[in-house]
Simulated scan of single mutants.
Amino acid sequence: MKGCRHSLIALMILGCGYADAFGDVTGGPALDYQPSVIRSSDDGARVVVFERLDPTTTDGDLWMTHSLDNGGSWSDPIAIIATAANERHPALVQTGPSSYVLFYLKGASAASSFRIRRATSADGITFTEQAQLDLGWTSGGEINPHVIRHVDGRMTMSYQRLGSGSFVAESNDDGATWDTRRTSIASSSQLPRIAFREVDGVYLASYQVGSSELAMVVKTTTDVYDWSAAARGFATTGNNHDSLPIVMPDGAFALFWIRASANQFDVAVRRSVDGVTWEPALAVTDSVDADDVEPHPLIDGSNDTVELYWGRGTPVGGSDYDIVREADVRVSDVVFVDGFEGN
């Protein structure tokens, strides 16, 4: 129950430190990467699930930390999904009071073994792994799940199929089962993420294409099973990775990603009213001594700013990454009055 859960988290908070200038969420020599963050409706706790990787193999386990004081301090991280297999790319969703589901890839060293898994929790701390998801494929190779939950309880998941591209599926039972239509978003693409605007039913998908240098492109649709519209360029100059789109409270889209700058990566963001025309990019980080990767925003009720979580590696090119947080990251430098309606 809510009171018990609050007590458990409060116990976990003991002994943790406070944020530095960037707002450290994790610390130490570990390779902490790829945060998935929610604000619990039970008690307002920030809940972050992230990968902790072996720097020699980049095999991972999933760890968790909480904050009860709006990100000012964080509990000592605990392992929640940790086996001899490789577990990475968490997507955490709350489905109701004291009810959470976690999606992630799992497999051995062979890429063909990778499947997407689901784990459930009744307190936001202890997770129980379920069977691999049936997405309609007879062999393995599904990775990188990103899951959003609609107002009506449906879930939409974008994922990558190794060697095949980007796909989407939907669930009506909190992610226990999914449609097996194997709906393609785009072939020859990687790391798809998806957002949905409830007011007009528009889906926005972003993904990367290319090899040594990657470009970021987007697609929109009002039918989750039809992505036949042409892709539109979003960030096509230089080397671009790790996109994640969201819908702001005013209905505008915001899309975070990372772009290469000299020898390191920095985080940037662009805003769009319609998912077609985008405002100029805003730099979120500009750090010559650090790699900033995998930005994951948490909407905070503002039309202009989000809480942003990402992985920061120092020195550049090293294997010491921590999860960091910035409380108020602007998504636009344009002053607007009535949101995406433009009135």
Rank of each mutant, 00 (worst) to 15 (best):
F253T: 01
P77A: 10
S7L: 13
T314H: 05
F256Y: 14
Q264C: 05
F234T: 04
T222P: 09
V37M: 03
V25N: 06
Q160N: 03
V147Q: 06
S109P: 01
F103R: 11
H296W: 09
Y33Q: 09
T221L: 06
W178M: 06
A231P: 04
S243Y: 01
T65H: 02
F336M: 01
V269I: 13
H6R: 14
T285N: 02
D200I: 15
I9W: 10
D69P: 07
G15I: 03
P315T: 07
I185K: 02
V247D: 00
E341A: 07
I246D: 02
V37Q: 04
G163R: 07
E198I: 09
T57D: 01
W227S: 11
S112C: 11
Y18T: 14
W278V: 00
G27K: 07
R115T: 12
I258N: 06
D242S: 08
V331N: 00
R197G: 12
T138G: 13
A45N: 04
A82I: 06
I78G: 08
Q190R: 15
S41I: 01
L14E: 10
A186H: 05
R197F: 14
G72N: 13
N172V: 10
S75R: 01
R115W: 11
S287C: 12
R88A: 03
M216C: 12
Q208L: 03
